[in-house]
Design a protein around this nucleic acid. Structure first.
Lengths: 233, 233
DNA sequence: CAGTGGTCTAGACCACACA
DNA sequence: GTGTGGTCTAGACCACTGC
């Protein structure tokens, strides 16, 4: 016996992954059915199923009824990045987090935002600008619009001590979100906030959240020099 | 009864998510145990377990033995980005993919790579530079080092038609990978390749893969103007 | 239609963490 | 100890899909 007596689905998963990487089951190959594997490993089909289901979720294999399970030809690897709230992200590095509210205004949604996110004309938005610091070095510049119709309480909220990020997380649910990352040049005012040279490349994250189809908030977050999204898999 | 007769774990998951977002189970709250929920929904505990386990994987709740299941205070949302091979990424947009090998050389690993990745001194690497185009517009500039000791066949591989990306995926397994994204300025030669202005911000992805602790390949991929990592959740 | 994966069940035992 | 979630089992039925 090369396998333990009680193969857990984790052990099975590791073994299947080993066979795939060792080309025992090469790319494109049809792997044995669940019943066959259950017999080979002396466990229940459900256990095999769990291991294979997770591998499928991770993009390593393709499973189709009747057709069976195949090793993917080009494994679409998925990178999972955790998107915590800023405070947690800063504090995770051991740095001291500091927040500052820079600007606050109520007004109509700018045209580009209305166009982008299909807002009614004249929708009133709370517009906030804030800075987040790590050990007093600029970490993130946040420019946010909050849809007052979707979040009436926001009109009276005080964002001088707690950032809108944390406030929204606690106060407002959402059903859909979209986030995107891109590289952009810091225009002069932003460069000052972030203490970088004008036109220096910075990472921009834009996130939009909706509650049942209604826009809740849209935020543009520019990160300071050296910011990286990193993950292992 | 507001619930269907046969609640699948998906229905349960959606219902639990609804309760969390509707603040029926507010952030930090302890939610009922699996047995209690199974009784409420008239299903097996395993079905409840599957729904809750998936919500925990997605970062919505925290589960601990004995302590029970709680709604996370600050949901660490995870964004999953798919990292396909370049060809698939280009073709997914409907564009025609074109590949070109720009440079090829064998030599010792550069010092910064050895320092970064703990390589033996004098390790011989195959150094490749390639371009990937989408409808003849520059899509990605790829600079790659491949550890010849880890992949001896690479010395005789012909990369004029098939890019090293696809070749490696088919030919060489790996056990660990790390990928990171950052914003950087295009230095002049790179800017020419990508048809952008010198010092224009571009997205850089760096990926390293290992096989059982031995470095397989390290690649720096610079993307053309407008590249975005996007996902919904 | 038949064979594969997808899901559910009822019951069981285990592992962990807290009292 | 005791109660929670974590995992496994044996069996069952269903859904999809390729023949």
């Amino acid at each position: 016996m090369t396998e333990p007596d009680r193969p857990s689905y984790r052990v099975l998963k590791a073994e299947f992954l080993r066979r795939i990487r060792a080309r025992v089951w090469p790319p494109g190959a049809l792997i044995p059915g669940e019943l066959e594997l259950a017999a080979e490993f002396g466990c229940a089909r459900a256990t095999i199923n769990r291991a294979l289901t997770e591998l499928a979720e991770e993009g390593v294999i393709d499973r189709r009824r009747r057709a069976g399970t195949r090793v993917k030809l080009s494994p679409v690897r998925q990178a999972r990045f955790e998107i915590p709230i800023v405070r947690a992200e800063v504090e995770a590095t051991g740095a001291v987090y500091r927040y500052a509210l820079v600007g606050r205004a109520v007004g109509a949604a700018p045209d580009w935002l209305r166009a982008l996110r299909d807002l009614p004309e004249g929708a009133r938005m709370l517009h906030l600008i804030c800075m987040h610091y790590a050990d007093d070095r600029p970490f993130q510049h946040e420019e946010r619009w909050i849809n007052i119709a979707a979040v009436p309480e926001v009109a009276t909220a005080d964002f001088s001590a707690v950032g809108p990020n944390e406030w929204l997380v606690q106060a407002v649910p959402f059903t859909d979100a979209e986030i995107s990352f891109s590289a952009t040049a810091a225009e002069p005012r932003l460069a000052e906030f972030l203490a970088v040279a004008p036109d220096e490349p910075v990472m921009l994250a834009e996130r939009t959240t909706w509650l049942e189809g209604q826009l809740v908030t849209h935020v543009r977050m520019h990160f300071g020099r050296g910011y990286r999204l990193t993950t292992r898999y």
